[in-house]
Amino acid sequence: MTIVRYNPWAEMNALQRQIDRMFEDVQAPVYRTPAAELTETDDALHLRLELPGIEAKDVDIEVTENAVKVIAQRKSETKTEEEAKTRSEFYYGKYQRVIPLKARVKNTEVTAEYKDGILNLTLPKTVEEKNKVVKVNLEQN
């Protein structure tokens, strides 16, 4: 009879390898945030967002005086091939980003251009109202 030393870590390592192999085939997509670039001039803010592989009809833009919210969805192509395995690193799903703005903008005068997966927004700044000082007279009887 041979004596064998029991190693509990060997079983744990084997279990870890089995779990890793199981998740190699089915990987959950990672939530991604579109890259942004914000530049400021004297009269406007210019925002560029990178939205590769998304059509203009799948982009929703909401602008308030203090922030820009962009929601975009990249839809997957459905292909059916018999007995074929596809391994894809493309991301399909919803992109969402809220970008706070440094200056107040006129959200009714925003212009947008979308070309080659790059969204360009021009956000004109508002002329902030100066503090008005009003003199109040107190009536005496």
Rank of each mutant, 00 (worst) to 15 (best):
T126H: 08
A10Y: 11
V110H: 00
M1H: 15
P52N: 04
R5G: 01
N66Y: 12
Y114R: 05
K135D: 10
K106H: 11
V127C: 07
T126C: 06
I54N: 09
Y114V: 01
S76R: 11
M22S: 14
E129G: 08
N141G: 12
Y114D: 05
K135F: 06
L119T: 00
K85R: 09
R17F: 10
T2M: 10
Q18N: 15
Y95C: 00
L15P: 02
V133Y: 03
E128T: 15
H46C: 08
D20W: 14
Y31N: 11
M12F: 15
E128L: 12
R48N: 12
N13P: 02
Q73F: 00
K75Y: 06
G53A: 06
E24D: 15
S76N: 11
T126N: 07
E55S: 11
Y114K: 05
K106Y: 12
Q73H: 03
E109R: 10
E83F: 11
W9T: 01
G53K: 02
K57S: 12
P52M: 02
I61F: 00
V98E: 01
Q16W: 06
E139Q: 14
Y91V: 02
K106C: 05
I61Q: 02
E89W: 14
Q16G: 07
T80Q: 07
D116L: 09
D116E: 06
L51R: 05
K69G: 00
E82V: 11
I71A: 00
P100H: 05
I19H: 10
R5K: 14
D58C: 00
A35P: 03
A28K: 15
R74S: 03
T126P: 01
D20R: 11
R87W: 13
K57T: 12
V63W: 02
T41N: 07
R104N: 15
E37K: 15
V134T: 11
N141R: 14
K79E: 08
A56Y: 05
A14H: 07
N120D: 13
G117K: 04
S88W: 13
K94W: 01
L101M: 06
R5M: 07
N66H: 13
V110W: 06
D58P: 05
M22C: 12
N66F: 05
G93K: 09
E62L: 10
R104Y: 10
T41H: 04
L123A: 08
T122M: 13
F23Y: 15
I61T: 01
S76G: 10
V105S: 02
V127S: 15
I118R: 12
V59I: 15
E65V: 08
F23W: 13
K79F: 13
A72T: 03
I54P: 10
L38W: 09
R48K: 14
S76K: 11
V30D: 05
Q18H: 14
E50K: 09
Q96R: 04
R48V: 09
N141T: 13
